[in-house]
Design a protein around this nucleic acid. Structure first.
Lengths: 144, 144
DNA sequence: GTAGGTGCAAAGAGTTTGCATACGC
DNA sequence: GCGTATGCAAACTCTTTGCACCTAC
């Protein structure tokens, strides 16, 4: 695990405990949004003794310290989590494998302003997700 | 309740029972996304005898028959529901009163194509929500 | 009259909390 | 060493299911 990732905890005032580093590592390595239970299952493979309630508590503290963002998606009834990115980003989400591609540009500034004017609505932020098939899953679909 | 709304049930093959008409009416009258429990609380005021499990079953059947869309939002951990609209629409959601304004135009077609080309990602649909303050809540905020 | 819908109660998931022990700083 | 974090078990909340009765067609 990178030093940068390890130091992130200290810099927000959280002790570097074994379970926290583990959760951080799992979120960092994964290219999917993950539920508390997804993370727990992966964590259990590395550290048999970790408890699900610890995972919940860690996620809660990470969200509070803004290390992690909670995400709700069309295809899942559960709250999911992702490591926070430095920059504003949108998502391409594969309906088949659930992989998430981050898109670091945003076409919405002018539309946002237009909405604000038309409805007298003051936009604070927005959420944009595209659902579809990633390159690999398109290939799989064509093959079958 | 409008005849159109009442006939909607029959036209998708659902009997017009009292609890179904009630749920339909509540969803129709409300300008917010609602959870199963939100709907149950409102329904209870009209019909004391309605049961929460009935509300869950009704919502399940409405989603299956595509009368209702399930929605997940940034500010709520629960699955919410809205009556389906005839046309593709996006949402302006007030962070204060949770009112939902429907926007029937969409700036994303060209961006969608661009994303598809750039990442070899075949977009099937997308979800766009703006979060902010509606006209009334801006006024309230300025007054306080 | 019959198939399907409903209310109630109980079961099942998912999430949170209390408490004694363990660990990072 | 102190204060916080953890694991475990129990509590709590949300959602689903089984069953007997009821109702729309």
């Amino acid at each position: 695990m990178s030093k940068k990732l390890r130091d992130w905890l200290l810099s927000v005032g959280l002790k570097r405990t074994k379970p926290r580093l583990l959760v951080l590592d799992i979120l960092h390595k994964n290219e999917h949004f993950m539920s508390a239970d997804d993370i727990f299952v992966k964590a259990k493979k590395v550290d048999k003794s970790i408890s699900l309630s610890t995972v919940y508590r860690i996620l809660e503290s990470f969200v509070e310290k803004e290390i992690v963002s909670p995400v709700t998606l069309e295809y899942s009834k559960h709250l999911l989590y992702e490591l926070k990115h430095e920059t504003h980003a949108h998502h391409l989400i594969c309906l088949s494998c659930k992989k998430v591609i981050h898109v670091h540009n945003c076409p919405l500034e002018s539309f946002e302003k237009q909405m604000g004017d038309q409805y007298d609505f003051k936009v604070k932020n927005h959420k944009l997700e595209f659902y579809g098939l990633c390159s690999a899953c398109q290939a799989k679909e064509n093959a079958s």
